[in-house]
Amino acid sequence: MQAADFQFLSALIKERSGIALSSDKTYLLENRLGPLAAQRRLNDIAGLVAQMRSVRDEELIRDVVEAMTTNESLFFRDGKPFELLRTVILPRIVAARPKERPLRIWSAACSSGQEAYSIAITLLEEEGLLAGRPVEIVATDIATSMLIKAKAGVYSQFEVQRGLPIRLLLKYFAQKGTNWEIAPRLRSMVSFRQHNMLGECAGLGRFDIVFCRNVLIYFDEPTKKGVIERIAQVLAPDGVLLLGAVETIIGLSTRLEIVPGAAGIYRPVGSGPRAAVA
């Protein structure tokens, strides 16, 4: 790939999605955009870039950005955050809040929806704890194709086997040929919306719990700071943010702090004992 083409593509992808591609990621561009070029009947990536330079084709730009988003997702990914949700975060929030107040959870950069549905399953498994409390899970992603898949709630055998215990598969899914379809009860708990993590998120409302796991790893430091700042703005004063196991906001935010003893969980600075996890 020509250096100029790489620079054009990486700048465009960064501007539209925040994803930072260093020059050693040329192979990633080639792997992901090669099929898109073929689909558009263009000879190669150079042809793709030439087309993008000549005509401002928003649909093509969207397809390029979507092709570069990583949509690795599985049910109950890493296990621990869902265990903490069930055993620590939910009991504290429920104990601290009036029953009528709805619980709002955000699954940010939700990809094909497995995280949002894993949250919904966790809540249903703890129905006694919630005691009829209204719940809203908002799941957002930049990619239209991912939102379509997530809303459909239909997963392949390969996808459901990755992380989903068999008893939960039997309880919350219906078999549909070789695929598995999520129960309407679960689907109705999640509202999917298109949202770019580079944009303002105030329109999504205030959240008690934010899952933003394995998202920051794709951004450079200034972008990470901006994303965390915007999340902090919509996090309830006693809310919590969950990041991926290898992610941290240390040095990136003065508004959030790590919850002692709970790796990957953050709360607003000064929320102390008020926080859902203290």
Partner: peptide
């Protein structure tokens, strides 16, 4: 045997988990 009836029978008989072939090693 990947249909729901077989999976249910297995769980009722005391299986703890169920892997549908073909499967990846990470499963």
């Amino acid at each position: 045997e990947n249909d729901i009836n077989h999976i249910q029978q297995a769980i009722e008989a005391g299986a703890d988990e169920y892997i549908m072939k073909p499967f990846a090693s990470d499963v």
